[in-house]
Computed example of a mutant assay.
Amino acid sequence: MDAISACGTRALSVIGFIGSVFSPWYAWSGRRDPANHCCINVATYGPGGRFTMTDRGRAALRTDDGALSVGPSEMRWVDGKLVITVNEWGALPMVTPVRGTITLTPQAITRVELPLTPDGAHVWRPFAPVATVDVALEATGWQWQGHGYFDANFGTRALEQNFDFWTWGRFPVTDGATCFYDATRVDGTRLAQAVHFDHAGQAIEITPPPLQRVNPSLWRVHRETRGDAGCAPRQVMNMLDAPFYSRSMVRTVLDGEATIGVHEALDLRRFRAPLLKPMLAVRVPRRAGWQFQD
């Protein structure tokens, strides 16, 4: 899930992984046991922002019909709301606690599944593309409300086996939200998907507006998104900047309406580079021995 504060000065992202696709430890293991490399990744953006992504072992994983627990953090559906309890430590160089509760309230739950490859090896599932979010973390200034979404990706192969590059964006508009998925697969074929979701959760495939360039990230990751002809999308907040990945708040124009949403660009050609994995290990510690105490 991602969320942006109503004032537009803060944002956050929470991702639950079973088989932590960006973990160097999972890659080095040969990706044979996804449950032995699980994680709840929490990143906060804005004043006092922190990044947490601890790779944990099988003993730290619990699932049931309405919950995912990884170590001391948990995602749980409660009365139609997704309640995320966070109890993590920030990665280097900001090794401080990240604790509190995040509550996402969907306006509706969709039934949409989008295969990202022809054989269905990768699937995008936008559960709640229109939602409100209440943030109550312990850090000063990290109590706010905003808008966000909740989605999931499922895959049976490593991302870099099937994709060279992709961009994704979710942009709130007056009558709901519009999402774009653009990808170049390793075989040279392309995905260009645009879906509009209304407040009732109904999904309509739309003709994608033109691709528009966005300035490269600080690591010079190529970026592009969709927008009306003649518009010039631009970054309004840098959220996460890595050698292979960019997450940011981007302003574009859709059907004449200016909108700011969360955008990501992923360069899997860079991610394949062997030297990248030791760099990632600094930010993604491995805690294989964590166990529940009850």
Rank of each mutant, 00 (worst) to 15 (best):
P126Q: 02
T156S: 15
G146P: 10
R170F: 04
T105D: 08
D175T: 14
E160Y: 12
A200D: 15
L137T: 05
V221A: 12
T156Y: 13
F127S: 10
P97Y: 07
T156H: 09
V221E: 04
G155Y: 14
G120L: 06
E113D: 10
E160F: 13
R157D: 10
R234N: 06
R170T: 11
R99A: 15
A139D: 03
V123M: 09
P106V: 02
A108N: 05
A158I: 01
D119C: 06
V173H: 10
T110R: 04
R111Y: 08
G201T: 08
W142P: 10
H222K: 15
G227S: 05
T189N: 11
A108M: 08
I109N: 14
R226L: 08
G169K: 04
Q145A: 13
T184H: 07
G155R: 14
A139F: 02
T184E: 10
N153L: 12
W166D: 03
I204T: 10
N162W: 12
P209M: 07
R213P: 00
D175H: 14
N162M: 12
W144G: 09
I102W: 05
F171G: 02
T132Y: 00
R157V: 10
V173E: 06
R125G: 09
A131T: 07
G176A: 08
A108R: 11
T110G: 03
G148M: 05
A121M: 02
T105G: 06
W142A: 13
L211K: 15
R99C: 15
H147I: 13
F180C: 11
T207C: 06
V186Q: 05
A121R: 04
V98N: 02
V195W: 04
C231F: 03
C231N: 03
W168F: 15
T101L: 11
P126K: 00
H199L: 15
T117L: 07
T132R: 09
A128R: 00
Q107R: 14
V214N: 02
G201M: 06
A192R: 08
P172Y: 14
D119N: 15
A232F: 11
